[in-house]
């Protein structure tokens, strides 16, 4: 079963997305901030990470850099989720090492497609 780590500080959003993903048959684990995310990754080795960018303690960009710099976790695809639709957000996310980018509120169907593609790419 594909394990998804959902990093999101907004509890309602976290809960909603987690539930919808679980319904689709994913193994979903969650973290409320960047630091917790890194711990979860070490402990559970997810297949893909959905990462909100504006996070307390450690933001998504920093957390992604850590993930991509660690050889043990570098292969895990990171899909950035952000409410910032301003110019540069996409570039900034990709620069910090994110593999994909999705603007909130997420188009759930498109999100599912992207997850599929990323997981297949990293698995092959």
């Amino acid at each position: 079963m594909t394990r998804i780590l959902l990093v999101e500080d907004n509890e309602l959003n976290r809960d909603m997305l987690a539930r919808r993903l679980k319904r689709r048959g994913f193994d979903v684990i969650t973290a409320p901030d960047g630091e917790a995310a890194l711990t979860m990754i070490r402990q559970h080795m997810p297949d893909i990470i959905l990462m909100d960018m504006s996070l307390p303690k450690m933001d998504g960009w920093t957390a992604t850099k850590h993930i991509k710099q660690n050889p043990q976790t570098a292969h895990i695809p990171v899909l950035a989720l952000t409410a910032h639709a301003m110019i540069g957000d996409r570039e900034r996310a990709l620069e910090s090492g994110c593999d994909e980018y999705e603007t909130k509120p997420v188009d759930f169907q498109r999100l599912l497609q992207k997850i599929d593609i990323l997981v297949q790419k990293s698995g092959s």
């Binding site: 907004n10 909603m16 919808r20 639709a85 909130k104 509120p105």
Partner: peptide
């Protein structure tokens, strides 16, 4: 406007997300 859009989008994400979930 950038801030407002952020502040509007976050609850909208929740509303749309839950509505879609409940609709399913």
């Amino acid at each position: 406007l950038a801030n407002i859009s952020h502040e509007l989008r976050t609850p909208l994400t929740v509303i749309i997300g839950y509505a879609e979930m409940l609709l399913e």
